Amino acid sequence: MARDDRRVEYPIAPATTALVSVDLQVGFGRDSWEPVPLAEAAVRNFIRAAQAWREVGGTVIHVHTFYTLERGPTGRMTDFASDVANALAKDAPATTFYDGVVQESDILVSKTCFGAVIS
């Protein structure tokens, strides 16, 4: 069978496209509240990508999780992690972004459930 080397190209314009991170918080990492074994490598890769994206004028958005008394966990979040409201309470250590992830020009979007696009 012959190899097909054709490629489809998708134009990406920094003015109309955003680079988005989801939950790049220290509470999601190798030895963290929610273990994510390769989180540190993903964070390093994201920081490099975000720096390059900002340099060409692109927007960087960070979707992150934290809870307050007025805005607690939604959906079935507590079915899976009963202590989530305390672990990810606003200003709790686990809600802190990894160093170097967020820059002043970035946009922050908070979420209250597992998915970044369902609430």
Rank of each mutant, 00 (worst) to 15 (best):
S105Q: 14
R30A: 15
I107T: 15
D5P: 03
P35E: 10
V43E: 08
L24R: 02
E70I: 02
A50Y: 09
K111W: 12
D99T: 13
E70S: 06
V8S: 02
R30I: 04
F114V: 08
G75R: 06
A94W: 06
I47E: 03
D5Q: 08
K111C: 11
V117F: 15
V8L: 12
T112D: 12
Q103S: 11
P14W: 00
K90T: 09
W53K: 07
S110H: 07
R71N: 03
D91I: 01
V63E: 06
C113Q: 11
I12W: 02
L19G: 05
A18F: 04
D5F: 12
N45E: 14
V22C: 11
E34M: 12
A39C: 05
A18C: 06
A15F: 00
A85Q: 10
T78E: 12
R3W: 07
V84L: 05
K111T: 10
P73M: 00
T96E: 11
R3M: 09
N86Y: 02
Y98D: 02
R6D: 01
V117H: 14
A41N: 12
G72E: 10
P14H: 01
A15P: 03
A50E: 07
A116S: 12
S105A: 15
D23M: 02
T74P: 05
Y10G: 01
T17F: 00
H62M: 12
L88W: 14
S32R: 01
A116F: 15
A41F: 08
Q51T: 15
V63C: 02
D31N: 12
D23T: 10
V109G: 01
A42L: 11
I12K: 03
G72K: 10
D23H: 09
D106H: 12
A52E: 07
D106A: 07
V26I: 14
V56D: 00
S82L: 09
F46R: 07
P37K: 06
D31Q: 06
L19H: 07
L19Y: 04
E9V: 08
A15N: 04
N45W: 06
R71P: 04
V109E: 03
M77L: 14
A94G: 02
A94K: 06
E104N: 04
V43S: 05
R54C: 02
Q51M: 01
Q25H: 05
Y10N: 03
R54T: 05
E55Q: 13
Q25P: 00
D99E: 13
L19N: 06
T96D: 07
G115V: 09
A94P: 01
P93M: 09
R76N: 14
T16A: 08
K90C: 10
Q25L: 04
E9R: 14
Y67D: 05
R48V: 13
D4H: 10
F80P: 05
P93D: 12
D83Q: 11
D4N: 15
V101F: 04
W53F: 15
A87V: 15
C113A: 15
T68S: 12
S105T: 15
A50K: 07
S82N: 10
A39I: 01
A92P: 03
A18R: 08
F66G: 02
T17D: 00
F28M: 05
A89C: 00
G115W: 10
E9L: 13
G75N: 09
A94V: 04
